[in-house]
């Protein structure tokens, strides 16, 4: 029984150790600014096309389904309100997080995994560099900066997609749609919508790094690390979403 639990407990311990060292390195020299910018370009700019596509179609589908339901009550004019709240609070952060996890957790795990199995990580240590400082911290910072930005883009594009569907299918005038979108949102929604991707970013980057750095067994091991990184990063996003959502609900209830 103890032997069965030993592996997962050790994995959690190693992950927290990696997280602690990566966060500690944020304030420590040397700062690899070039690597941070490079990762921001790769993680952030590189993910824009998939975020645009998923954002647009998720917003459009949501408007289509919401509009159908609201049609029964003659309330299609309020489609924008639902699209806006669901996108900003839940769907935008989660969908963007999962898409970026699929693209970047896997990318990070395979890149670091390849470096690990070809002894490049050992070489880095031998040549005077802390691999966590050089490889993990820049990816963590870049993801933390870019994921909220990508979420904002996803939300906005989703609203546009929803607006087009509302106009085409339910003849909701544009000004009315945007007015309900705008008025539905309160500051706590925006806070929640930006806090979530910020926290998800740590799961996306650090889980990718963790599985990459512990890859063993050649190319097969790299493939395994990549799969595990995507699976666990996606699961972590849904679990964290539940907890953050609950915390924000509790905070709003205290406010009232």
């Amino acid at each position: 029984m103890l032997d069965t639990l030993k592996g997962p407990i050790q994995a959690v311990q190693e992950f927290y150790e990696l997280t602690g060292r990566a966060i500690r390195n944020v304030t420590r020299k040397p700062h690899y600014v070039d690597d941070i910018l490079l990762q921001m370009e790769s993680i952030g700019v590189g993910s824009v096309p998939i975020v645009l596509l998923t954002g647009f179609f998720s917003g459009a589908v949501m408007a289509m389904q919401m509009g159908r339901g609201l049609q029964d009550y003659g309330q299609t004019g309020r489609t924008g309100q639902f699209v806006s709240i669901i996108l900003v609070r839940e769907l935008g952060p989660v969908l963007t997080g999962v898409m970026v996890a699929g693209r970047n957790s896997s990318g990070i795990a395979s890149e670091l995994g390849s470096m690990k199995v070809t002894e490049q990580i050992d070489a880095m240590r031998a040549l005077g560099t802390d691999p966590i400082q050089k490889l993990v911290t820049p990816r963590m910072i870049a993801t933390a900066l870019m994921l909220p930005c990508l979420t904002i883009i996803d939300d906005f594009i989703g609203m546009i997609g929803g607006g087009i569907m509302a106009k085409v299918l339910f003849s909701v005038p544009g000004p009315q749609y945007w007015s309900t979108v705008w008025r539905a949102l309160v500051w706590s929604d925006v806070g929640q919508g930006l806090t979530k991707p910020f926290i998800f970013s740590f799961a996306v980057s650090l889980i990718g790094c963790y599985y990459g750095l512990r890859a063993t067994g050649g190319t097969q091991g790299v493939g395994r690390a990549t799969t595990q990184a995507v699976v666990w990063a996606s699961i972590a996003i849904f679990v964290l979403d539940l907890f953050i959502g609950k915390i924000f609900i509790a905070i709003s209830q205290i406010g009232t």
Binding site: E119, Q120, A123, L127
Partner: peptide, 16 residues
């Protein structure tokens, strides 16, 4: 102390 050592790794370990 590692700066006083040089190491050639088995697979060269050059940074791609």
């Amino acid at each position: 102390i590692r700066s006083k050592l040089g190491m050639l790794f088995q697979e060269s370990a050059l940074f791609d």
